[in-house]
Every structure is written in C-alpha cells, then in structure tokens.
C-alpha cells in the first residue's frame, strides 16, 4: 500500500528524513513511531504530496506520489497533525464542502456526511460553528473528514490527540472496526501504548532514519529467558548456577529450555517462587533501545 525507497527530505542544512524505506502492506495497521521531531510528520506529508521529497521515491496504492496524486488521494483519508476546518461554518457544512471537492455526487451528500458524523460520534451535532467546538470535537470532526468517501487507506497523524480516555477507547474501536472491514491504516503516533494496542506492524523513526520495521508480534515475542521472582534470590542463584543471566533485588533472569522442569526443581528445593513467566520485551523496551531522546529535549552544553 505504501512503499518508499530512499525517501529523503532536507530543509536547508537539516536532514529531516534520511533515506527511509517504508513498506506498508495491505491489511496492516502500521504503527509509525518516533519521538517529537524525528521526522514522522514530514514523512507523512511526503506520502500525501504536501511536502516534496529532496530525493527518493514514494509509492502509495501502487502509484508514484506526488505525480499521480489525482488518482491516489481520492482513495486515501488523511488526518495530518491537527484537524483543520473553516471556523465560521458548522461541522456539517465543513464536511459538505469537502464532500463537494471529492468525487461524490450531490444527491448522496447529506447521507454521506451524516454517515461519517455518526461513525465518529458526532451524529447529533447541531449547526454551531466549528469555532465553538472543543478540542475533542475538532479531533472527531477531523476523523470524519478522513473517513469521507470510504478510503482504502487511512493515514492518521496522532488521531487521539485531545480526546479523553473514553474518546480514545471509542476511536480505537472505530479503527479496529474499519480495519476489520478491510481498510489499511497508517497510524503515526508517539504514544507507545496506543500503537501497542492497535498495530500489527511497527516502524520506528529516529532522527530521520527508520531504525526498526517489523511485525509487532516479532518485536515483542518471548526472548527465550525466564523471569523468576522469588524471596530466596541467593538460594535460587546457587541452585541454578550457570543458567542465571541477570540477578535483580527480588528476581532472576534464567535461560532454561523447559520452564516446567525449572519450576519442579525450585519447588523440590524449597525455593519460594512468587512469579515465573517467560520474559517478554515490551514495545517500549524495543523503542527505547533503538532510539535517543526526542528533539524537544535540549541538554545544556
């Protein structure tokens, strides 16, 4: 669905995006992670033809961007950074304007607008101007914009920005529903938890470079070590000599082939076990190991 090759953007002397090769497949929920200032938004803008790449190529839905934007973009729904709307018009009027700019005929317009408003939870919205909307309502309206025209690909930049926990949950369900219906979703975010709950594949950007791109399941699969929490750390350590890879205050990391055997051995020897589980890396561990702090952190020095 999205494939880039050597995508690079340079602003003056600053390399914002550096030689990025993305591969988003049909049916993915692709989590695009990166610290603030890592080049996520610039990449998204290049995919949509808003920013022109310094070098490299981008293909969206199998066609070159931005050359074939006219054919590609009608099939793409986008929310780029913050939602944008005419402040003096109502949410419904804004959607009507955008629908009129798309391919849809006039006859079904009201129905299409009501449909997307319902989907994002603004079905009962009145004719108040958007200027009076709360941040969460604007965000929902932005999502409604993106959903107009049943896009095959959704490109969403921080879609849950400004929503309360209830709203975040709702939007997550909406995205999962769309995904189940066959929509491919490219989700850019710096919220690890959000990506971990939604994504099937993950790409991580660090200072403009794509440092990780893999299935979420692969990234967070068991490491092969076993996490053992016990009150008798020293006895367990002596017992398992040679297999212990890490000793903590109240836990050990052990490399064994058979966890059931390990458990039996510990019990037989009277070691009091509080927890025994395969060690898993969280997405946070993976991302933190691969990246440095975001550009909003400025050290003295």
């Amino acid at each position: 669905m999205i494939r880039t090759h050597g995508l690079t953007k340079r602003y003056g002397g600053i390399l914002a995006v550096d030689d990025v090769d993305l591969d988003v497949r049909e049916g993915d929920v692709y989590g695009f992670l990166g610290a603030n200032g890592s080049g996520k938004t610039t990449t998204v803008r290049m995919l949509l033809g808003l920013v022109l790449a310094t070098s490299g190529t981008a293909e969206v839905l199998g066609e070159a961007m931005p050359r074939h934007a006219g054919r590609v973009l009608p099939e793409v729904g986008a929310l780029v950074e913050s939602p944008g709307a005419y402040p003096r018009l109502s949410g419904r009027a804004n959607l009507r304007v955008h629908d009129a700019l798309g391919r849809g005929r006039r006859s079904g317009r009201a129905g299409r607008v009501d449909d997307v408003l319902d989907r994002v939870g603004l079905g009962g919205v009145d004719e108040r101007p958007v200027a009076s909307y709360s941040l969460g309502m604007r965000q929902r309206l932005g999502l409604a914009h993106a959903l107009l025209g049943h896009p095959r690909l959704l490109v969403l930049d921080e879609p849950t920005n400004g929503l309360d926990p209830q709203g975040i949950h709702e939007i997550r369900d909406l995205l999962l529903e769309l995904h189940a219906g066959g929509t491919t979703i490219f989700l850019s975010s710096h919220l690890l938890a959000e990506i971990e709950q939604l994504a099937t594949r993950v790409g991580v950007l660090d200072r403009g470079r794509l440092v990780i791109e893999d299935d979420l399941a692969t990234l967070t699969r068991p490491t092969g070590r076993t996490y053992l929490r016990t009150r008798d750390v020293d006895r367990a350590r002596a017992l398992l000599d040679g297999q212990v890879e890490h000793v903590g205050e109240d836990h050990l990391l052990v490399r064994v082939d058979d966890v059931a055997e390990l458990n039996a051995l510990l019990v037989r020897d009277g070691v009091r076990v509080t927890e025994l589980a395969p060690e898993r890396r969280t997405l946070e561990d993976v991302v933190l190991a691969a990246t440095v702090a975001g550009s909003d952190r400025i050290e003295r020095g």
Binding site: R45, L48, A69, E81, G84
Partner: peptide, 14 residues
C-alpha cells in the same frame, strides 16, 4: 493559517 490548506490538497484539489 486555518489548517485547511493541507486538507484541500489531499482531497485532492490540484
């Protein structure tokens, strides 16, 4: 300034 330009261009309007 309103943030609508990018949404016009991705609709897309040439």
């Amino acid at each position: 300034q309103q943030g609508t330009l990018r949404y016009l261009l991705v609709r897309p309007v040439a």
